[in-house]
Simulated scan of single mutants.
Amino acid sequence: MAIPDFIRDLRTLIGDKLLWMPGVSAVVLDEEGRVLLGLRSDTGEWSIIGGIPEPGEQPAAAIVREVFEETSVRCVPERVLLVEALQRVVYPNGDVCQFMDTCFLARAVGGEARVNDDESLEVGWFAVDALPPMESFAVARIKQAAMDAPTWFAGSGGELGEG
């Protein structure tokens, strides 16, 4: 997975210490209600599409960019599904990160789903009732999108995915 230049620069200053980062993800649906997933090259697991905003980039613009860069699909964010601080991640090189994820529900508006960079091994559309095994992080967000529930905020009461 490519490391943005601004993170490389920060790492020269802080080493592998905890880096608190913004993150964006999306449950992208097509006209048939299928969800766009990528088989991640770093974990080997299926997941929704996500990434890191560039400095100064708005979250909605960042997810549109990330979805296109990774899958060649053009999308339009329709609403925020949730905002949540994720668990700390320790990468194989020892870098420690924690992400504040803003997850969007987005609608595909063009493009053909395909691997478009080195972050995915495969890309495809899946029926919500026929998902491949995947991270619980992604499953919870897909369930939240399917419920058409209000935006969920961690710590505001209720569990993610509850109706």
Rank of each mutant, 00 (worst) to 15 (best):
V73P: 06
R74D: 04
R74G: 05
C75H: 05
C75E: 04
C75N: 04
V76A: 11
V76N: 11
V76H: 12
V76I: 12
P77Y: 14
P77Q: 12
E78A: 15
E78Y: 14
E78D: 13
R79S: 08
R79C: 10
V80I: 04
V80C: 00
V80D: 02
V80Q: 00
V80N: 00
L81P: 02
L81H: 01
L81F: 05
V83A: 08
V83P: 14
E84H: 13
A85W: 15
A85P: 11
A85G: 10
A85H: 14
A85L: 13
Q87M: 12
Q87V: 09
R88L: 02
R88K: 08
V89R: 11
V89E: 10
V89Y: 15
V90A: 07
V90P: 04
V90M: 09
Y91L: 00
Y91P: 01
P92C: 01
P92G: 01
N93D: 15
N93S: 15
N93V: 15
N93W: 15
G94D: 04
D95M: 07
D95P: 10
D95W: 09
D95A: 08
D95G: 08
V96C: 09
V96R: 05
C97T: 15
C97N: 15
Q98I: 01
F99C: 05
F99R: 04
M100N: 14
D101R: 01
D101V: 02
D101E: 05
T102K: 03
F104W: 03
F104V: 01
F104H: 02
F104L: 04
L105R: 06
A106L: 05
R107K: 10
A108G: 06
A108K: 03
V109N: 11
V109H: 11
V109R: 09
G110H: 13
G110F: 13
G110M: 06
G111R: 13
G111C: 14
G111S: 13
E112N: 12
A113Y: 10
V115A: 09
V115L: 12
V115S: 10
N116I: 03
D117I: 06
D117L: 05
D118K: 07
D118I: 04
D118A: 06
E119S: 10
E119T: 08
S120A: 13
S120T: 11
L121Y: 12
L121W: 13
L121V: 08
E122G: 09
E122A: 06
V123E: 01
V123W: 03
V123L: 02
V123P: 01
G124Q: 03
G124T: 03
G124C: 03
